[in-house]
Design a protein around this nucleic acid. Sequence first.
DNA 1: AATAATTTTTAGATTTACCTAAAACTATTA
DNA 2: TAATAGTTTTAGGTAAATCTAAAAATTATT
Lengths: 221, 221
Amino acid sequence: MHSFTEENYLKVIYHISQTEPGTVQTNAIASGLNTKAASVTDMLKKLADKQLIDYIKYQGVTLTEKGKIAAIKVIRKHRLWEVFLVDKLKFRWDEVHDIAEELEHINSSILVERLDDFLGFPKRDPHGDPIPDQHGNFEPSAHIHLHEIAKGKKGIIIGVSEHSSPFLIHLEKLGLTIGVTIAIDGITAYDGSVELLVNDQKINVSRKVAQHILVKLEEAQ
Amino acid sequence: MHSFTEENYLKVIYHISQTEPGTVQTNAIASGLNTKAASVTDMLKKLADKQLIDYIKYQGVTLTEKGKIAAIKVIRKHRLWEVFLVDKLKFRWDEVHDIAEELEHINSSILVERLDDFLGFPKRDPHGDPIPDQHGNFEPSAHIHLHEIAKGKKGIIIGVSEHSSPFLIHLEKLGLTIGVTIAIDGITAYDGSVELLVNDQKINVSRKVAQHILVKLEEAQ
DNA sequence: AATAATTTTTAGATTTACCTAAAACTATTA
DNA sequence: TAATAGTTTTAGGTAAATCTAAAAATTATT
Ligand SMILES: [Mn+2]
Ligand SMILES: [Mn+2]
Ligand SMILES: [Mn+2]
Ligand SMILES: [Mn+2]
């Protein structure tokens, strides 16, 4: 259907459109794919020809409905394979992203559905990201980034917004994994780092790390 | 390491060298890969540069030790994924080959080893083919093709030498699957078809089908 | 051994996905 | 609003993997 490369473009465009408002810019796509703006322009023309994106020169792009469905299919596969690797093959959460980057391009819808069944129709991947069902539907999680939470608030870690191995290993060492309950003890004025209470233990987390931890706040009683 | 395409060439060269004596010819590779002889010549130069094959113009090729190891690695992955698809995801043996053709190119040695472990270190794939271990070693099965067996002999089906879906579905319908005991009741002179006894039932199998069924003969008592 | 048939290689193109450098456009800001 | 900074596109090229058609080499047949 779509080439390996086209799928990667669609996925990156989708991810950027979820985090930044407005149309998706050429440079943003280039940095997301570790390629150059000129290459991106070439591919945008191709994706527009295939009606996967709406593209106006110099104005950035948006996914068409067709493009969005294709992107979500790739993301579904990526996350299901990550669950497989962690749940069945006993990989750690920091080891699976790169392998899933390859597996996500395997082209067989029956395979995806059988895998989903085999895994027990999981709703979240090992990083807390929602897994779209076969129709592309999923529940976006109501989360807030750790660095944006006010002092005194409590919450539960429900995900991360970076998947790199060094970052995840760092979190593991700090004991900041999915499901852990935290309380904001304070925010350091000098460097923006966050003081946390985890199981009555004080932990300091840099602002850069806090930006990539997703938290669900405790319901106000 | 090696590209998707290079891996496919190595695999096909390996398979041809197992079935036909002497060096592997350009045309044989072309037909095995559904491509043209001119394209094969181009790639042979590239594989020779990489020291994966020994190539003398007009004389065909042989795999170097390095090339053989690479080919066997791909075959190991192909067969392990086929076991995964049948044993874990409940695919039928006729559905798995094409999906495994894609999965075999996923590039992660830790993934292969974990998968092997998860599957319980299987020795054979769903078509009866041996699965090389991580060092590339495997027991080649002492088999004979069904059409070469003399009248009166008995044996057990241990594999097939064609993996196409129509062929395997046909065998399934005839009840000629791996592990089934058969006796040769006779060979029809007119068309070379084979008369079999399976569970005291008479079955006629065309010569073409018989050529692709691998049998282990019963030990002479 | 000469000729014919077959196989293989070369020559020259094409397609996809990249690249660099320069030109064109848009946004900023003085 | 004009200059400047930043972004995006175009122009022209490369590398991988294909192709067709023609030339060269090998093998088979008289
Ligand atoms: Mn991931
Ligand atoms: Mn993930
Ligand atoms: Mn197979
Ligand atoms: Mn097989």
